[in-house]
Structures are given as C-alpha cells and as structure tokens.
Design a protein around this nucleic acid. Structure first.
Length: 285
DNA sequence: ATTACGTCCTGTCGGC
DNA sequence: TGCCGACAGGACGTAA
C-alpha cells in the first residue's frame, strides 16, 4: 500500500540503477496496467536516458532526454524488482511463479541492470507526458502541495478545510488537497493529533488543525526514516522490508486498547467513503 | 462546488 | 476440506 514514504523509498532505491541510465531495452508484456499504456510506449522509452528520478505525491517521475517524462504510479501492489549488472556467466536466479506471472514491464539499462515492474492487481499505471507540459497535465495541475514541503502548514490546511462538511479523514485522502497521503498515515496522523476523523472539517479549531499538520509531517518523516511500512503488498526494490508498521498506533488495531497515555478507549474501525478508518472515539475529538 | 458512490483488479483470510 | 464473501486501497468517472 504505497503512500508517500513507500514511494519515496522506492524512488531512492531505483536511483542507483536508473538515474542517469540509458534504456537499451523496454518490454511491455501487456498493453495496459490500470489504464492503457500510451501509444508506442516501449519504443518511446528505448534509447532514452533517464536524467534523474523525482517524486510528486505518490508518483515517481523520470524525466528523459527525449523531452518526455515517464510517470509511474504504484497503485496498490505495484513494485519494482531491481537486479544490477552481474556476471553474465552467472545465470539469473529463478523467480517464484507469482512474480513471473505479474511481471508486466521490463527495463534494461546500458549498464546491464534489469528492472522489472510487478503488479498483481494492476492498480498501478504508467504514462509518458511532455516534460514542458507536465505541470499543466490534468493529473498534476490540480494536485495539492507536498505535505513535507513549505506550502503545507496550519494556515493552508485551515483554508482547505473551510466550508467543508466532510471529515478530515476524507479530505486528507484527497490528493487535490495534499499529495501523498493514504489511508494508513491519515489514520495515524489523526490519532496523534487527537482529531476525530468524522468531525466536520470546517469545525476543527485552528489549534487542532495546526497539531494535525504537524502530526502529518511527523508521521511521514518517521515512516520514511523506517523505509516505509510493509504489510501484505508493499516490498522494497532491494527485497528488504520497511518496518514502520510496528509503529502503528491505530491502523489495523480495531478492538485493541487505545495506546494514548491515560486514555482508556478502544480502537474502532468504521467505514468512511468506502475506506476503513481506525480511531479512538475517546481521545480523538 | 461539493459530496457520494461505483468501478477496476487479484490474492488472502476468516467463517461456515 | 473447500467454497464464498469481505477486504485490501489507490485514482477516477458519474451523478446528484
């Protein structure tokens, strides 16, 4: 379940193999992921040099020397398998059948690295967009600020919440308000800030919104330092696991006692906009 | 403008 | 033991 910390971890681990690398071979083993791949996808990538790897929200961006940018979204189960250049006399290790079955896109670099995009549920997607027009692209034009950037603070969030009747849970998941949060970190941030996920967002005091913005930044920074969270779906390109899941205070903990000091509440699971919300009804007001 | 809800996709897990 | 539904949760389309 890649959210910002997981996507950033993946970006960093792809860098050694892909930043500055020239693609010598690209294979799309099917014409679509979540959406159809763009026209002549593999051909437009083959021979291109990836100038660097960036991240915007939950997207990985790879600007190319062709004037286009490869945009990648991992969806739910998308991940990369990275094999750096190796001794050609040593055959590659066999992969488990499930891996092979859902290996949809292959990238080979001039230096001999083999990068495989694997996505069982195919909620991920890739696109090629004109780099000069990237900011104006519908997918990015309306995207909210980076939660760890300077534009995301209490004043900004207060404005975004103004006049809104939906709960902060729903609004923080909206990538047009802030880019990169997903279900897990929104639940965790709301609990840390002591803010109820169901309270009408316009009715949250500035002081609480301030605490919420701080909690969002803190939980993301901590998760990133831990290499993200590994649940059933997410795996790092290096095969390692993130370990922030051990720091969850509410996510997936329905029925367990609230971990807040002095609070005797019990974590509840409810459904908001079709998604699970985990929270403590006692200390989240 | 805002809100609500359905859709996509497949593997896993719990209950019967 | 096997079947079946619930669930996981990203973005997006549609309709009110």
């Amino acid at each position: 379940m890649p959210e910002l910390p997981e996507v950033e971890t993946v970006r960093r681990e792809l860098e050694p193999a892909l930043a500055g690398a020239r693609l010598t071979r690209v294979v799309a083993r099917r014409p679509d992921l979540r959406f159809p791949l763009p026209h002549r996808f593999a051909e437009r990538l083959t021979g291109a040099r990836i100038e660097r790897l960036e991240r915007r929200g939950k997207f990985i961006l790879a600007p190319l020397d062709t004037g286009e940018t490869l945009t990648i979204h991992l969806g739910m189960t998308g991940r990369f398998d990275v094999r750096l250049a190796r001794d050609p006399s040593c055959p590659p290790p066999d992969r488990p059948p499930a891996e092979r079955k859902h290996a949809h896109i292959l990238f080979e670099t001039q230096a001999g690295a083999l990068i495989t995009f694997v996505d069982a549920r195919r909620f991920g997607f890739m696109d090629l967009v004109d780099t000069a027009a990237l900011a104006a692209h519908p997918r990015f034009a309306g995207m909210g600020p980076e939660p760890l950037g300077p534009a995301f603070d209490a004043a900004f969030l207060k404005r975004a919440f103004a006049g809104r009747r939906q709960g902060p849970k729903t609004l923080l998941l909206d990538q047009r308000i802030v880019a990169g949060l997903g279900n897990i970190y929104v639940c965790e941030a709301l609990h840390r800030a002591g803010v109820s996920p169901v309270r009408g967002a316009a009715r949250i005091s500035l002081a609480r919104v301030d605490g919420l913005a701080a909690a969002v930044r803190a939980v993301l920074a901590e998760a990133m330092a831990a290499g993200g969270s590994t649940l059933r779906d997410y795996a790092r390109p290096d095969g390692g696991e993130g370990y922030f899941q051990h720091a969850f205070l509410v996510y997936g903990r329905a029925g367990k006692p609230c971990p807040s000091t002095g609070c005797h509440g019990t974590i509840r699971r409810i459904v908001q906009s079709g998604r699970s919300t985990f929270f403590c009804p006692v200390c989240q007001k």
